[in-house]
Amino acid sequence: MEANQPHTPPAAAEGLVSVSGLTRQFPVGRSLFRRATSFIHAVDDVSFQLNAGDSLGLVGESGCGKTTVGKLLVKLLEPTSGRITYRLPGLDGAAGQENAPLEASAIIGRQLRTFRRQVQMIFQDPYESMNPRRTIYDTIAEPLAVQGMGTVLDRVDMVSEILMLVGLTPPATFLFRHPHELSGGQRQRVAIARALVVEPAFVVADEPTSMLDVSSRTGIMNLMQQLAHGLGIAYLYVTHDLAVARYMCHRIAVMYLGKIVELAETEELLRNPLHPYTRALLSAVPVPNPEYRREPPSIVGDLTAPIDPPERCRFFDRCPLATHYCRDNPHPAFEEKAPGHWVACYEV
């Protein structure tokens, strides 16, 4: 098993974050006295790589496992199998050498504290992702405080600085307010501030704009891009909205029932989608132009939950291109069909 070999050849793990064969299953109907017999295959054999300053959009419908991937990457969840390798500043490699790749399962104790500084997350719900009883200062300073960074007074300065950076000025008027006194857009700015105050190298953003109003959404999108670009932060942007992903990410990965089915540069993916699911998804996105005519997506059936799915291609039941070959063979391998354009499909 991969988990038994923490030493990764450096050449294979050039990226800031490398994911290979990542799998996470959730037991269904388990209780104290009964072992689960069924599993939701939330994330199934997912591989990709992210370099410093890179941005990857993880797009898919609800329940496709995109948020689970995000949580696995920030170690909120542990993978069932497969591995995530980080190459983060300050994080020592397995052999003790600095800046060497380190496997997620080996990050414990002191390393975990460093990890928490380098890898942060922005959550979807700006109303629920902040403790209602704590002030904006407390919220943003939390990572600093639990990691013992600076004195209280330093933290006030650091938080003020980051507040200005995310456009909440003057900071003194925000420091000691409570989250409920802020609008959704302002709270999401606070959430960004909390993630960036420790100067991470990698951020997972889990649909940070999906619950915001149109106008504040653009502000947050632009802010995130500016900051990530300015600070050289790599991010994984989890979203259900291809249009948003287009504006936020260099590359887009499309997920379907736990599998990444296609991954390519953003414009390449939009112009030349290869996987039938990507095509269906693209043709279902409404376009804010009354004169634009879309073809109805050629996809049948409804989304199901990936509970003990059969070995074959996950998209088989709904695929317009499905053949007997697809039915009788395991899920297609993720292959590079064009430079930088990866697809998992037998028929393209």
Binding site: V214, T218, N222, L242, A243, N289
Partner: peptide, 15 residues
């Protein structure tokens, strides 16, 4: 301020 997957990628206006 509304992103779109069709057409050229525009700069999104901040409202």
């Amino acid at each position: 301020s509304f992103p779109s997957i069709a057409g050229e990628k525009r700069v999104l206006a901040n409202l």
